[in-house]
């Protein structure tokens, strides 16, 4: 009953809207387009959605933990062997966990049409993309960093390497999110893009893997590893500046 009452009201209101708004003066009635505003808008939205869909945060994390636990079971529990391969295991598991979580970056937005609306917004695409990638990193990369020390204990990682592990993860996981975003953007329109995504993205992860594990190994020997960190930082800034544009171009192709 209430619905009916409103629909008559609706027609009345219509005449009112006709009077007070004129077409053409868009600049006046619309908000100023600021980069920061657009960035925060998308970031807030993605974080809200993630908080209401917590398994998206928890599942990749569980995957990370389980994969790491499989290695001692497959290789044997000797502390010496484990501590030798711990950096590699943690980093490979982190790569795979990131890969698994990448799908949610654009997939649901593509399926419900909000991706189209984002591409049609007057805001520059790279800002929106950057906000989405940052949100993705907060949701998936940050928890990995927080739980990594625990796994390092399980794998008897050398005590001197903990700082190196955390620093490499802190600098490296954003690179994984950024490069991964390019892969997802390219495959988001494809029905069975999941396996393809790993084929596209994993080769691009190799430099991060090499320098990160080497930094942790070097730290275990008590040697300075700032060189490796500097290279990972360079990879981070490089992908930070280039990836959003590649993602934007790829999304345009995928929604075509």
């Amino acid at each position: 009953m209430t619905l009916k009452a409103q629909s008559t009201q609706e027609t009345e209101n219509l005449t009112a809207t006709i009077d007070n708004s004129m077409i053409g003066d868009t600049a006046q009635s619309s908000q100023q387009l600021s980069y920061r505003h657009a960035f925060m808008l998308v970031l807030k939205r993605d974080l809200t959605i993630a908080m209401r869909h917590k398994d998206d945060i928890i599942n990749p994390l569980l995957f990370f933990v389980i994969v790491v636990t499989l290695f001692p079971l497959g290789i044997g529990p000797e502390a010496q062997t484990l501590s030798r391969i711990a950096p590699g295991i943690i980093w490979v598991a982190a790569l795979l966990a990131t890969l698994l979580s990448l799908d949610r970056l654009f997939k649901s937005d593509h399926l419900d049409g909000s991706l189209e609306q984002m591409l049609l917004s007057p805001h520059p695409i790279f800002i929106l993309v950057l906000a989405k990638i940052f949100a993705h990193w907060l949701i998936t990369g940050l928890p990995l960093i927080l739980i990594a020390p625990l796994l390092a204990v399980l794998l008897h990682l050398n005590e001197q390497s903990y700082t190196a592990l955390l620093l490499t993860l802190l600098l490296g996981t954003p690179v994984l999110s950024l490069l991964g975003a390019v892969g997802v953007a390219l495959t988001v329109g494809i029905k069975k893009g999941g396996v393809l995504l790993s084929l596209l993205v994993l080769p691009l992860y190799i430099p991060v893997l090499i320098f990160a594990t080497s930094a942790i190994d070097t730290a275990a020997l008590g040697l300075p590893y700032s060189g490796q960190l500097a290279i990972i930082a360079a990879l981070f800034f490089g992908s930070l500046t280039l990836a959003p544009f590649a993602v934007g171009a790829a999304l345009k192709v995928s929604t075509n």
Binding site: L179, V182, L186, P203, I206, P207, L235, A246, A249
Partner: peptide, 15 residues
Amino acid sequence: ILTLVGVVNIPIIKY
């Protein structure tokens, strides 16, 4: 697009 991303990465990977 993928080729271009790859060509930027090839020197880095190689190094």
